[in-house]
Write a protein that binds this DNA or RNA. Structure first.
Length: 522
RNA sequence: GUCCCCAUCGUCUAGGGGUCAGGACUCGGGAUUUUCGAUCCCGCAGCAGGGGUUCGAAUCCCCUUGGGGACACCA
């Protein structure tokens, strides 16, 4: 096993060499960013920041058939939204550019040539039909998963079975072909995974992976190894779905004579029903099947989740600060400080929307009121409440903040701060507005009318006095007043609410409501 | 099927030989005689099973079971 690296503020020591940490997020641009992908990006980012290293975005767009227009732009905008700004990536220049694999094909071909020359790889001319036929034969022989490896490569149409002359001829005639990795029999490959510890693979379990496709583009396996080496990536942090292809990558590093980077394979994130989070689950619009959860980060952005809440939540899905640290709520900076790969869990996690929503609320609570004011001001305009003074809005927000699960709920929940209520909660009206209500409201209105300083404390005092004078409880007044003034039965503390609304508004609304109550009682 | 990974409350997890197995979300209850999806307090609920090792296992080892991943000219 490789010796454990020692980290310092500026990188880490491998042996006695100080290296700058360089990690990459390397998604294929499919047009949407998966929750799991965002977490992978986040862990890479946190690791880079923690160790003073570089966070690199590399676009793995070597599959021309899956090319999606605008996908890269979308990807970058999601990362920016989340605050995970790459230090290098599309648009950067310098020694490591370009960051689109589709623009690096020459490189892969050049390195493939090296493998060909050393005998680590070979040409294969099998047509898809021929491979399918071989697969059929294997199936009939009772082997449902054929491997193109030592078991059959000598029966196939490849350069291992051709004379030099025949090979040259085939190449000259432009016969379509791929380049395959020659996987030796009976080798063991071991990776010291940062999260899982040592994992050993037998080479007989892997196949002669295609490295270069017939269209001249590389496969993931080749491109990822070449680029990670050329870009001087020190730590490959990616999803567990890649763990089983590690031996192929290890063999490639070995064949090139390169030192492989350290590797960390992250646990997967699942639906509540234990299945893999899939884009297919949401394709039939809106309605999510039971037990499924939306994997598309863009959906959460659209629904108005706080970016810090999402980051916080997915960070906790597979990682925790441990060591008696019970914190649940983190912002990005706090995560950077607390994060370490050693504390990433091995087992898969289930995505729990309820906890995300709770965190969303916690993050709204922690947000700066001025920033929220700026954000919500336009929403009020859209909702038709017109111009609202910033300082008034800020006071409303301060009052409403702690009962907001989504900023998007604000207008719906706080409309009565900006316009007189037009409707009144019927159930609450039946319960709270009774025969003696108007009499109490009238007394209360009269009392606050005379109030010089309309403060919460003064209002409360007045209300208690009225209650006492009528030999009744505060609730007998509080509930009807809240309903009369706001139209609803829930909200912040009544006295603060009334103070903020102002005497004039409160009196106006009370008067109007008393008319309604009179009709209702009659 | 083969290889690989994983396994503590419903969920996220702490704990890595001796703990009343801790916290968070959810849920339930209570308090706040002012509501609430707010706040505070309380509670329900867990070491998958079986073998070892040991004076002693949630903790170490093995097996079983269960879950997951990979097995493409996709990443």
């Amino acid at each position: 096993m490789a010796e454990s690296p020692f980290f310092c503020d500026h990188g880490y020591f491998l042996g006695d060499v100080l290296k700058t940490v360089r990690v990459r997020f390397a998604p294929s641009p499919t047009g949407f960013v998966h929750i799991g992908g965002l977490r992978t990006a986040l862990y890479n980012y946190l690791f880079a920041r923690k160790h003073g290293g570089a966070f690199i975005l590399r676009i793995e767009d070597t599959d021309r058939e899956r090319f999606v227009d605008g996908a890269t732009e979308n990807l970058i905008s999601v990362l920016e939204w989340a605050g995970l700004i790459p230090d290098e990536g599309p648009g950067s220049d310098g020694a490591f550019a370009p960051y689109f694999q589709s623009q690096r094909t020459g490189l892969y071909q050049e390195y493939t040539r090296q493998l060909l020359e050393s005998g680590a790889a070979y040409y294969a001319f099998d047509t898809p039909q021929e491979i399918e036929a071989a697969r059929q034969r294997a199936r009939q022989a009772g082997n449902p998963f054929m491997k193109y490896n030592f078991t059959i490569r000598h029966e196939m149409n490849n350069s291992l079975n051709m004379t030099a002359q025949a090979l040259q001829q085939a190449l000259d005639s432009g016969k379509p072909h791929v380049i395959r990795l020659l996987v030796p029999e009976g080798r063991k490959f071991e990776v010291a995974d940062e999260i899982r510890g040592p994992v050993v693979f037998d080479s007989r379990e892997i196949d002669d992976q295609v490295l270069l496709k017939s269209d001249g583009f590389p496969t993931y396996h080749l491109a990822n190894v070449v680029d990670d080496h050329l870009m001087e990536i020190t730590h490959v942090i990616r999803g567990e779905e890649w763990l089983s292809s590690v031996p192929k990558h290890l063999l490639l590093y070995e064949s090139f004579g390169w030192t492989p980077p350290r590797m960390a394979h992250l646990p997967l994130i699942f639906n509540p029903d234990g299945s893999k989070m899939s884009k297919r689950d949401i394709q039939s619009l809106d309605e999510l099947p039971d037990g499924k959860v939306d994997p598309d980060v863009a959906s959460y952005i659209r629904k108005g989740y706080e970016k810090t809440a999402i980051i916080n939540y997915i960070a906790l899905l597979g990682w925790n600060p441990g060591e008696g640290d019970d914190r649940q709520v983190f912002d990005l900076d706090e995560l950077v400080h607390a994060f370490s790969l050693e504390r990433v869990n091995k087992s898969a996690a289930i995505f729990d929307l309820k906890k995300l929503q709770w965190l969303n609320k916690e993050h709204i609570l922690r947000r700066d009121t001025a920033a929220l004011t700026a954000q919500l001001q336009p929403a009020l305009q859209v909702a038709g409440y017109g111009e609202v003074a910033d300082d008034y809005l800020a006071r409303v927000i301060a009052l409403m903040k702690e009962r907001l699960y989504f900023t998007g709920d604000f207008v719906k929940l706080a409309g009565y701060f900006f316009a007189d209520p037009l409707a009144f909660d019927e159930g609450a009206a039946r319960k709270r507005w009774q025969a003696d209500t108007n009499d109490l409201l009238a007394q209360f209105a009269g009392a606050i009318h005379r109030l010089e300083s309309f403060t919460a404390a003064a209002i409360e005092e007045v209300l208690r006095q009225v209650a006492e004078a009528n030999n009744t409880s505060g609730g007998k007044l509080i509930h009807p007043i809240r309903l009369a003034v706001t139209g609803v039965s829930v909200g912040p503390g009544l006295f603060e609410l009334l103070e903020l609304l102002g005497k004039e508004t409160v009196l106006r609304r009370l008067k109007k409501s008393m008319e309604i109550i009179a009709k209702m009682i009659a």
